[in-house]
């Protein structure tokens, strides 16, 4: 607020709200003029800080001072770490639940398509997939938080994990089903002609081959999920994105917190892609 004092803007604001006798020394002066105070705070948001008014800083000095200000001062990095923990936690719950729902759904769909079983379950799964894929994930998150679990008293992070799991399950279901369908029909016939039951053939012959088809797409789904959790702030969770926004609101600088958070996501994603690349290579080596 020093900048506003120096330039006399505060005086002008009070004058605008009908008080020309601006004197901060008088006790209770500010609280007597709430509109003026609100206006000052808004303007203050966008005012340059008096310390870094000098123009002789180069970009890297500026960047360093921004990093210090946004992450080091007042231990703000801890906010990021906390956010990251929440992001990872939500992603892991979402992924685990999504895999569970997705694989069960895919098996129901495949059994229905190949063996004409589970007619009712199959219909339910189809509705579920259609609804989830046809509505935005943010709306799903809000519905699950504010309606489904409104009075459950569950931790909002767990609720977010459930919401993302339910969402992801629909996509995983289609990925797994496509992977199973991509295994040539002759494989099942060969297994059955040897006397194996359908279940045995699925477990020993079809699924191991399907996994190879599924893995790359499943990894992409996991990565999408990680990125999608950035909307968790909408239900009051401090995930890593929300943490960056909180820092921004304290330091009034957007560049470093937001770019920093983008880099955090990028690094995690690149690491996951590296892991899956290795896994895929191992699976491929077995074949040729």
């Amino acid at each position: 607020m020093a900048y506003l004092e120096e330039t006399g803007v505060i005086k002008d604001i009070f004058a605008y709200y009908g008080d020309i006798g601006y004197d901060p020394e008088i006790p209770g002066y500010f609280s007597a003029h709430p509109e003026a105070l609100a206006a000052i705070q808004v303007i203050d948001h966008y005012s340059p800080e008096t310390e870094d008014s000098g123009d002789d800083q180069n970009f890297f000095e500026w960047l360093w001072s921004e990093i210090v200000k946004n992450f080091v001062e007042k231990d703000r990095y801890q906010l990021i770490i906390m956010g990251l923990q929440n992001t990872v936690f939500i992603t892991i719950i979402g992924l685990a639940l999504g895999l569970l729902i997705g694989i069960i759904s895919a098996i129901i769909r495949s059994y229905h398509d190949m063996r004409n079983k589970f007619k009712i379950l199959n219909a339910i799964v189809r509705v579920y997939i259609t609804v989830i894929r046809g509505t935005p994930i943010l709306v799903q998150l809000l519905i699950i938080y504010f309606i489904v679990f409104a009075s459950s008293g569950l931790n909002s992070i767990v609720i977010a994990g459930i919401a993302f799991g339910i969402n992801s399950g629909a996509y995983v279901a289609e990925i797994v089903r496509a992977g199973i369908n991509a295994v040539p029909k002759g494989q099942l016939e060969a297994a059955e002609s040897l006397g194996m039951t359908f279940n045995m053939a699925m477990v020993t012959v079809i699924m191991p081959q399907a996994v190879r088809n599924i893995l790359p797409a499943l990894c992409n789904e996991g990565i999408s999920l990680l990125k999608e959790t950035s909307i968790a702030g909408y239900i009051g969770i401090v995930d890593v994105t929300k943490a960056a926004m909180l820092i921004r609101s304290q330091t009034y600088s957007a560049f470093v917190p937001l770019i920093g958070v983008a880099l955090i996501y990028l690094i995690i994603v690149l690491f996951l892609q590296y892991l899956v690349g290795k896994l895929e290579k191992r699976l491929n080596n077995a074949y040729r």
Partner: peptide, 20 residues
């Protein structure tokens, strides 16, 4: 049927070996 199939071997046009 699975018991029946144990006693009937089959060889396919496209081999259908398990590639994994």
């Amino acid at each position: 049927i699975t018991k029946l199939r144990e006693r009937i071997g089959m060889v396919f046009q496209s081999f259908n070996l398990f590639p994994n």
